[in-house]
Design a protein around this nucleic acid. Structure first.
Lengths: 187, 187
DNA sequence: GTGACTCTGTAGCGAATGCTACGTCAGCTT
DNA sequence: AAGCTGACGTAGCATTCGCTACAGAGTCAC
């Protein structure tokens, strides 16, 4: 009655997406081999076979996360008309990142930042890739005619990251009040 | 020849400082009972005896970290003359936090933020206590005659946190350029 | 066929995890 | 003196950790 058990032939590429979904949902701290394998529909034995080491698995997984993040930004830049002012761009950014759907990714982001700060293998390259990508995206999205797109993008990057951190702690309103007081957000 | 082995009678209060030193040095992720006990000069058995549960231990430990942080801020506010401008205050903050001696605490901070974002028990109260304390400290340190001390403090808080995050990833210069472009830092 | 190679399942290793059972010993009260 | 209590050590439990040894099944070249 049952099919003759086809051969899926798992590879690193097919294993990474479900594992990424797992770490986004459960966190990197709880990412041990057996739960990861279960999420990917395989066994811990197979994960070691494909990646060699858990450390290499985490490195590859973080690189994959950075790649997906870059792809999301690339997709977002395609169908977007440029904002008129820096404030409008900032408001757009905060609206996107304040979306509750973004929260699981933000939880993962803080673990990546912490790992990068501690120098854990694979964390810093992934974090720098994502920050670098976001910075480039911001430069490309700066309002036309902006007097200093490079500096403005760096300002927005700093302000957005600070706001996201405070938002993760339940201080989103505090950050918003600060940005309004600083004239960075349109009223 | 040797003294008759005095009885130190460990309590929660005497155990917390060496454990805090341990988590600052090694991180919360590696904070299991036996290493923590070794750092405090006792055994895992005694940690459970005093705190009841590891979860309660972590909660108490984070509260203790928040208390020490608040005490440090209180000490810093005592012998400080007020800055002349917001930019000067911001420069002072970034100089303090850019100190390499602060880096181990920053590593711990990202773990606390991550735990708070995930809702781990004890993390969010500790993180909110520290952010709230820093915000109050900033309000008290705002330049005299500032038109909007409350809003300005919130702006500086957001900007400082964003800068610290980027600094932890090796993007300190990026944040600095942004703050200069935004006129928030004096040239 | 026969061997070589790739992929995968089962079983298990030694270490570390949080926590408990049990006993000891000092100091107190009665 | 007898008993109680709080502080501590020793030993161990069940579970999970990353990882390995070994065997089986499928495919391909010869």
């Amino acid at each position: 009655m049952n099919a003759p058990a086809r051969k899926p032939t798992m590879s690193r590429e097919t294993l990474l997406p479900p594992m990424m979904a797992h770490v986004i949902a459960e966190g990197l701290g709880q990412a041990s081999l057996r739960p990861l394998a279960k999420a990917a529909g395989t066994s811990d034995r197979m994960l070691i076979y494909h990646f060699g080491t858990k450390e290499q698995l985490v490195t590859d997984l973080l690189a994959h996360v950075a790649g997906v993040y870059a792809a999301v930004l690339d997709a977002a830049i395609a169908g977007a008309e440029p904002p008129a002012t820096r404030g409008e761009l900032l408001a757009r950014l905060l609206a996107q990142n304040g979306d509750p759907a973004m929260q699981p990714f933000l939880m993962l982001w803080w673990e990546i930042v912490g790992g990068a700060a501690r120098g854990l293998p694979g964390f810093r390259p992934a974090a720098q890739a994502m920050v670098g990508k976001l910075l480039g995206w911001l430069e490309a999205q700066m309002p036309p005619g902006d007097p200093d797109p490079a500096g403005g993008a760096r300002l927005l990057l700093t302000v957005v990251e600070g706001t996201l951190m405070l938002s993760s702690l339940g201080h989103a309103e505090t950050a918003r009040e600060g940005l309004l007081a600083g004239g960075l957000l349109p009223t």
